[in-house]
Simulated assay, not measured.
Amino acid sequence: MKKIARKKHLEMRLQSIPTHPKPKVNLEQYTTPSIIASDLVWNAFSLGDIDGKTIFDLGCGTGIFTIASALMGASLAVGIDIDADSIDLAKEVSYNLNVDNVKFIKNDIADFNCSYDVNTVFQNPPFGSQRKADSGQDLKFVKKAVDLETEVLYSFHMASTEEFLINYYDENNLDITHIFRYDFPIPKIYDFHIKDNRDVRVIAIRAEL
């Protein structure tokens, strides 16, 4: 498979990945827009974190970071999600895009036992954009990435928690090297949503373990 040479081309490929087929409010499922996913993955590629590497996408949803990593030259990209509907769709999309260096696993990340040497982890976990969301879900994903002994972690969080996160990462011996900032669009997909769309300010932290 020919590696993509331009960020815009990567974004265009990712635009064909559909949103969650049956979004579940308890999992806080919001699909990462292609423009954000392509920007973060392109930066990760530029930093040497993708090409020839083993990539894990925790809470992969419909597989946008898994597939993007594969398109950018990962030796293997593995997506893990607890939601069977999302995993089934991710498999279908990767097949249609002729991406063969991927693997999708239905599993709760808390129960997943890894037999791979993981180089890079991407994760867009439930980060508390809902008022009634369980706090700290994103930190459970960070802890799992540490358990996987990954070399590099890219993790999304609410920008409002940045100061806390910097201290948390430092206390857990995670060296933050970059912080990427995005306006993350939240569409009206759940019954309790009032506005058609709203933007939530998020950060994606790159940390080395």
Rank of each mutant, 00 (worst) to 15 (best):
E92G: 05
A110K: 15
A110D: 13
N96W: 05
D108W: 07
F122T: 03
L97W: 04
D88I: 09
P126E: 00
L89Q: 11
R131K: 13
K132W: 09
G136C: 10
G136V: 10
K103L: 07
Q123C: 15
V93W: 04
F104Q: 03
N107S: 14
L97C: 07
L139M: 13
K140G: 12
Y95P: 08
F104K: 00
K91Q: 11
V93N: 04
Y95D: 15
V121Q: 05
V121P: 07
Y95I: 12
N124T: 06
F141W: 06
F127G: 00
V93H: 04
N107A: 14
A90D: 08
L89Y: 04
F104I: 02
F104N: 04
A90P: 13
I109M: 07
F104M: 01
V118A: 01
F104C: 01
E92A: 12
V118N: 00
T120V: 09
Q130M: 15
K91H: 04
D134H: 11
Q130V: 07
C114K: 10
A110F: 13
D108H: 06
F127I: 09
A133K: 00
C114G: 06
N107G: 08
P125F: 06
I109C: 01
N107I: 03
K106H: 00
F141Q: 01
V121S: 07
P126C: 03
E92M: 12
K103D: 08
Y116I: 01
F127M: 02
Q130A: 12
S129C: 12
E92T: 11
D134Q: 14
R131D: 11
D88L: 14
K132V: 08
K143E: 15
G128C: 02
D117E: 13
Q137P: 06
F112D: 01
T120A: 11
V93A: 06
K132F: 12
A90K: 07
G136K: 12
S129P: 10
F122D: 04
I109V: 05
L89R: 03
Q137V: 15
L97M: 12
A90T: 07
L97F: 08
P125R: 05
Q130T: 04
L139V: 13
D111M: 06
K132I: 09
L89N: 02
P126I: 00
L89K: 05
N124Y: 10
N107K: 11
L89W: 05
Q130W: 13
L97E: 08
Q137L: 15
S115D: 11
F104H: 01
K106W: 00
Q137A: 14
F112S: 03
D117S: 12
D138S: 09
A133I: 04
P125G: 07
S129W: 15
I109D: 03
N124V: 11
N113K: 03
K91D: 11
G128Y: 03
F104Y: 04
K132M: 11
P126F: 04
K103Y: 03
N98V: 10
C114A: 09
V118R: 00
T120R: 06
S115N: 14
S129K: 10
N98G: 06
Y95Q: 14
A110W: 11
E92N: 13
E92P: 09
D88A: 14
K91I: 10
D138R: 03
Q137W: 09
Y116Q: 01
V142M: 10
Q130Y: 13
G136A: 08
D117A: 06
